[in-house]
Amino acid sequence: MKRAGFTNPWLPILLLVPQLSIIAVFFYWPAAWAIQSSFYLQDPFGFGSTYVGAENYTDIAESTEYRKVAWFTVYFTAIVTFLSLSIALLLAVKADNVLRGAKTYRTLLMWVYAIAPPVAGFLGIMFFDQSHGPLTRFFGFFGWDFKLGVDYFDTATAMIIVAVWKQIPVNFIFFLSGLQSIPRAVREAALIDNGSGFRRFWDVTFPLLAPTAFFLLIINITYAMFDTFGIIDTMMKGEPGANPMTLVYKVYIDGFRGNDLGGSSAQSVILMVLVLVLTIFQFRLIERRIHYT
């Protein structure tokens, strides 16, 4: 195969400059700044800062509260990822079989995708309102005295429901296109071999969906860890109190609400390292074992 190439070696670099400069300005520069400020304690107006070495990091390591928030983030991420992937997969498989009115059905399912996270959070507040929320009443019907913003478990449940609901459409779109790209011949061959739809799905369809599923797994983990910020912020109504929160929300609370820039920088460096590990894991360990065909 003939490789297409540039005759002038500077041209590709020139073409990359816009993209690279955006990455530099919005990622490398702030990241470097965060790493630097994580070793300092700043006064809130930026008039002076004191070098404190690794103290910001040791403070975090000693904080039982930080550990609690970290564990909540783990549970939250695992549950949100699992539920939004499995529900979306189920819906996609069903939608793939629909012949009549398929477009309307799909559009309705994708609709939620257009909702901004804070708006989703706001809808959550209305649905789970302590006295008038329809879902609060629904739970009350089963004897569950649901209290958003008061009970830790109830608040976490509400956050998870809204976060999952918001993420299903994205997963649905990817799963559906993944399903539709599975060659017809393969499916028909499977149909002859095995009459059970359930077995056909797990033995043939699901492995062929694996690349999509893996890609979505990574996307969903980052979604649950970072992009749910807007939902969590809205549902707390500006008062963290005793409510559950994720690590990225704690960075915001300590840095912007509490003006502790050093401590919050150290927390964001920890998150950066976590993302780095996740990325390495994605490229090195799993991508090799999954075949994209």
Partner: peptide, 21 residues
């Protein structure tokens, strides 16, 4: 200083007292 965070700590612990945590 950092009193905003101190208030957040109070709110968190008071919430836990009142919910029996």
């Amino acid at each position: 200083g950092f009193y905003v965070q101190i208030r957040d700590v109070m709110n968190r612990e008071y919430g836990r007292i009142l919910t029996g945590e």
